[in-house]
Design a protein around this nucleic acid. Sequence first.
DNA 1: TCTATATTTCGATAAATCTAGAAATATAGA
DNA 2: TCTATATTTCTAGATTTATCGAAATATAGA
Lengths: 100, 100
Amino acid sequence: MNTELVAKAFKELGHPSRLSIFRALVKAGPNGLPVGELKQTLDIPNSTLSHHVSALVTAGLIHQHRQGTTLYCIPIYETLEGLIEFLMKDCCMAPSKEEV
Amino acid sequence: MNTELVAKAFKELGHPSRLSIFRALVKAGPNGLPVGELKQTLDIPNSTLSHHVSALVTAGLIHQHRQGTTLYCIPIYETLEGLIEFLMKDCCMAPSKEEV
DNA sequence: TCTATATTTCGATAAATCTAGAAATATAGA
DNA sequence: TCTATATTTCTAGATTTATCGAAATATAGA
C-alpha cells in the first residue's frame, strides 16, 4: 500500500461517523452488517449514511454484497492490515534494516 | 483514545503531504526533524507546510521543540500506538473476550 | 542595533466535503 | 401488477479545507 492509498483510507476513516461504521463492521466480523442495521445503530439519515458507506467502498475499506433487498457491508481485512502495517513500519525505532 | 480523537488523528493523516511529514518524523526517530528539513525533503512552500504541521500538532500526532532559530517537529509515539491499538482492536476475529 | 535565517500568520481564492429531504430505483412477495 | 421495504441518487446550501504569496515575527550573531 503506497502513500496515496493509505492517505485515502485514513482520510475516509477520519470522520467520526465513518470510523464508527467501519469499526462496527470489523467488530461484526466477516459477514458484516446490512446498511439498515448501521442506520439503526448509528442513527444517521439514509442519504448521509449512503454517502459515507460509498466513501468507505471507494477507499477500499469495505465492499458490499446484496442478499435480496438488503445490502451487506463487509470490511476488507487486507486493507485494515495494510494500514496497521504502514503505521508499524519504522515506528519501533529499532536501528532499522533499511526499508521494511 | 476515543472515537473522536482517533478520527481527528486519521483525518489529519488522511492527506498525502501530512502523511509524508508524519512518516518522515517517525522514521527520523525521537529527535524528529526541523521544519526546514521537511521543507527541503518534501518540497512544500513555507506557508502550506506550516499549516500542515500545525494540523498534526492539533491532532496530537507531533509536538514542536525550539532550538535556536530552528523548530524541531517530533512525533508523539503514544498517539501512534493508540492508533495502531484502535485498528487492531476487534480486527482479529477471535471469538472475542468482550471489549478489549 | 542591524542582518540573516527560520518559521508563522495574514489574506484571499478555489475546491472539496457534509448534510439531509425528496425523488428514484431495486428486489421480493401477494 | 401492486405494494412494501431497502437503499441510492438528486439537489442544493452551508461549512471546511487546501493553497500559497506576502508580510510579520522570532532568534542569534556581528
